[in-house]
Amino acid sequence: MLLQKNKTVLSDYNEAIQHEWLETNGLGGWSGSSVIGCNTRRYHSLLMAATVPPAERMNLISKLDETIIINNERFELGTNNYGDTIAPQGYQYLSSFKKEIFPEWIHEVNGVEVKKTIAMVHGENTTVIIYEVVKAAKTFTLELLPLLAVRGYHSMMHANNDAHWDVLFNNNVFKTKVYESTPEIFIKVPDAKYEHHPNWFYNFNYSIEQYRGLDFVEDLFNHGKFLVELKQGDTLGIILTTEDPSGKNAIELLLKEKQRREGLLEQPFSSTVEQILTLAADQFIVKRTIPKVSLTGGI
């Protein structure tokens, strides 16, 4: 029951951006992008929250670009299309992508091998990202740069002076509210150091929007970056959410979600294709809140 792309596909930018992954939360929210992490649609997002399930959605966290730092040498794992250039070109460090229960990536750079898993938690506007250090000769630093859109999912964000730069970072939890009318955003990064350098990042190009003849250039906002020291055998679990994640553990959330999905496969299936379709169908089931109707017909 395995969907997989090898390094030959992943190292070919024009081929790789045509393949996408998707996670959903049963509320109308989702997480998804191309398999190399380069957003090609306005609907690509790490945390697309269903703010009023299931109809109203907001692209809160567009992406999280990673950098591995070894002996002060930087290896950027992200990939972005700026129109006249693709930078960084982190897809070159991808050795594999696969999806069985969850989408998983293997990054290999300068003797370091890191496995990344992304999942959405059913019934929550929550995305978890798990990094497992498979191989590393020595300790290295993982730098994480969250890029925020904070907009309606049909809209596009452009640099403005209304974004709030203030954040709180206590007990490994980052908290911000970018605009008065938008949800709070929480990012939990265990054992991280946070550096506050708020700035706009300009001119992200979305090739599929351009092909459709629509507005295809967006600016994204960043408050700062997280830095975590890692070594071989370490596992780092990150939570992106609209609710306070204090007391929650990303690895436990992933395990719970894995058990829920495996439960869908307990019945006998005649083929692997049926299992794949069952999990795929689960991604598109959304819980709706049905309004109560009074005897007089009012709501």
Rank of each mutant, 00 (worst) to 15 (best):
L3R: 15
K7S: 11
V9D: 08
L10R: 00
S11P: 01
C38R: 06
N39V: 08
S45W: 06
L47Q: 02
P54Q: 06
E56M: 12
M58E: 15
L60H: 00
S62W: 05
K63P: 05
L64P: 09
N72G: 09
G83A: 02
G90C: 04
Y93K: 02
L94T: 10
S96M: 09
F97M: 03
P103G: 06
E108Q: 10
A119D: 00
H122S: 08
E124L: 07
N125C: 08
V128S: 00
I129S: 04
I130Y: 00
Y131V: 00
Y131L: 03
E132L: 10
K135E: 12
P146H: 01
H154F: 15
S155P: 08
M156C: 14
N160E: 02
L168W: 14
F174E: 00
T176A: 07
I187R: 02
K188H: 05
D191C: 10
K193G: 10
E195H: 12
H196P: 07
H197N: 13
Y202Q: 15
F204G: 05
Y206Q: 15
E209M: 04
G213A: 11
F221V: 05
N222P: 12
G224N: 07
L227V: 13
T235L: 06
G237L: 00
I238F: 03
S246T: 14
N249G: 03
A250F: 00
K258Y: 07
K258R: 11
R260V: 07
Q267V: 06
K287Q: 12
V293Q: 15
S294N: 10
T296E: 12
